[in-house]
Amino acid sequence: MVETLTREQVMAHRIAAQGLHRDRPAAIAALASLGLQDAGPTARLALAARSDGDPDPVARGLVDGWTHRGAPHHHPPDERNAIAAAARPFDDADAAARLNWSGPEQRRVGIPAREAIDRAADALAEVVTEPLTKGAASGAVTKLLPDALLRDCRGCATVHVNEQLFRLSAFPVGVGLDPTGRTLLLIPPPAGWERPVEGDPGRAARLVLDYLRVLGPAGPREVADFVGTSAAAFAPAWEAALPGLVEVEVEAGDGAQRSSTRDVHPAWLPADELDAALGAPDPDVVRFLPPLDPMLQARDRPLLVPDEALRKDLYKIIGNPGALLADGEVVGTWRPRASGKKLTLEVAPVVPLAPDVRARLDDEAERVAAARGLRLAGITGV
């Protein structure tokens, strides 16, 4: 029998699985295994929303690198090699999808996509033997690559290696990031680094399981989109993971929105997460989630945020606000406004906030300010 989960159960499960009740330290490890995206204070605020401990990912022993979609993510240092192996493209179609290369672009380049990544990775391995700024590394790599892999960059007013190619070539050779200084540094691989040679569906299955453990239930398209490829290209990883998954049905919308025929779709969870999903605790938490927070990384965005106008506001191309989470729902957005050492949070709820939710905002806002090393001046908009 296939179990059915309501949207409310899915939200409650994700909130619990991601440690947003602040009572599940193992959830932090699960999130780090998938990757905590690093963009300004995002990772610090995501950790502050989930733990009373130090919100600094570096202090927690996490390390930074360009992984999923070429975006910087914090991961446990002892898992970096396994993640690099799991993320190795299976073939040229997979590599091209990760590079965002269209058919005409691939023909223009004239170099198979996976070979292009390998060439750039060879160059990075040769160049990054000590900490280097991104600009210095890019300039040195550019000199080692054929013209077909370079781009005329208007922003830089120069020609350099394609940006996404540059990012995707770093992790295979263990080149990481040091974001702690004023200037981002690329750092050499750790001792004993093993460069992945071939895509391995068995190893890539860990990405499926890691995603579904904290953002499930979901399907193959959502996982592939998070990784940065197409569902067709990532199919070998999904097939390898299937024996450890269980299929469920997910009902969309709340009780008032469901049709008489039930709006349901198939999705999957790790088999050992089904009971937790069915019995997830009430999501009675109020949290200021930063932009790019793990909760907001779910690829089934209409399920996460049914309100279309709110969803468009949350997922802009640039300048995304944070999300206000209250009792299992995203109920608005927020933006930080810093002035000197003071921080004001501008909140824009899309529904009236219950008195008990409003009463909990101050404590959560204090956490946001503390995680940024500032003092809370107040909250506006509520």
Rank of each mutant, 00 (worst) to 15 (best):
T180I: 07
L31W: 00
A232H: 12
G219Q: 10
A95L: 05
A224K: 05
D225T: 14
R88M: 10
L310A: 09
A231L: 08
A121S: 11
R107N: 13
I28T: 06
L124N: 01
A252T: 15
L324I: 03
R119A: 07
A232P: 01
T129D: 11
R372M: 15
E239K: 13
A120W: 01
L45C: 04
T333I: 11
P41N: 09
P179V: 04
E105S: 11
G228Q: 07
A369P: 08
A49W: 11
R372A: 12
A326H: 10
V197C: 06
P201S: 04
A32C: 04
T4L: 14
P321L: 09
P236Q: 01
G139D: 04
L310Y: 03
G181P: 06
R299P: 06
V248P: 02
W66N: 01
L215A: 06
P25F: 05
A237M: 06
L361E: 05
D363L: 11
S138G: 15
P355A: 00
A277S: 07
V382R: 10
H13G: 14
V331H: 06
G219L: 05
G199D: 02
L245C: 04
E249I: 00
I317Y: 14
D254C: 11
V285K: 00
R367M: 09
R22C: 06
S33W: 13
G155R: 05
A46T: 02
R151H: 12
A71N: 14
E346V: 14
G328P: 07
R335Y: 09
D362E: 11
G174A: 01
P112Q: 06
E126P: 06
V286P: 00
V331Q: 05
W268V: 03
A205Y: 03
P201R: 02
K134I: 15
